[in-house]
Simulated scan of single mutants.
Amino acid sequence: MHVSPPASTAAAPPEWITGDAWADELAAPEGPSRLRVDTVRFAPGARTVWHRHPFGQVLIVTDGTGLVQRRGGPVRTIRPGDVVRIAADEWHWHGASPGAFMTHLAVQEVAEDGTEAERGGAVTDAEYRAPTTSA
């Protein structure tokens, strides 16, 4: 068994985020495993762009209040303890609510060619501020 500390915190790439967010890599694909796990912390109002993962994604909210939306669905409020399962190739976005930080674990399988996600367009302010429902 190999035990190592998480990599240092890094700012999320600006082409993937509106606002400020930071990530800590907890598990990177190694050997036969293609599992990736990150802790991501979003500042109030920060959110990802529309994107999709080849094998889906699981988000586990650990702190704060956030928002998530699947293409064509309502914007949903997410809170600590909520688990969001995104289907393979499902377009979605997620981030913090306008007035609170939000932290989640992001768990996904990386494709054999190294693809983790496909980036789409930015989430507009109108999409972000749409009425919300509870998850």
Results as ranks from 00 to 15, higher is better:
131 P>C: 02
17 I>D: 00
135 A>H: 13
111 A>L: 08
84 V>T: 09
104 H>P: 05
133 T>G: 08
36 R>D: 07
82 D>W: 09
121 G>M: 10
135 A>P: 03
6 P>H: 14
10 A>V: 08
50 W>C: 06
75 V>H: 02
101 F>H: 15
22 W>H: 12
123 V>P: 05
121 G>R: 14
133 T>Y: 02
123 V>L: 04
54 P>L: 06
102 M>P: 05
117 A>W: 09
34 R>T: 12
104 H>R: 06
119 R>S: 15
23 A>E: 15
79 R>D: 08
25 E>G: 01
94 H>A: 04
48 T>H: 15
24 D>P: 00
74 P>D: 12
89 D>W: 04
45 G>E: 13
23 A>D: 11
47 R>Q: 00
4 S>P: 04
125 D>H: 01
133 T>L: 15
64 G>W: 03
13 P>S: 13
52 R>H: 15
73 G>E: 07
7 A>H: 10
22 W>K: 03
124 T>W: 01
114 G>C: 14
132 T>Y: 04
121 G>S: 13
112 E>P: 02
44 P>D: 00
28 A>K: 09
89 D>H: 10
81 G>F: 05
41 R>F: 01
127 E>I: 10
2 H>P: 06
80 P>N: 09
60 I>N: 05
120 G>M: 09
117 A>K: 11
122 A>H: 06
32 P>F: 03
46 A>R: 06
95 G>N: 00
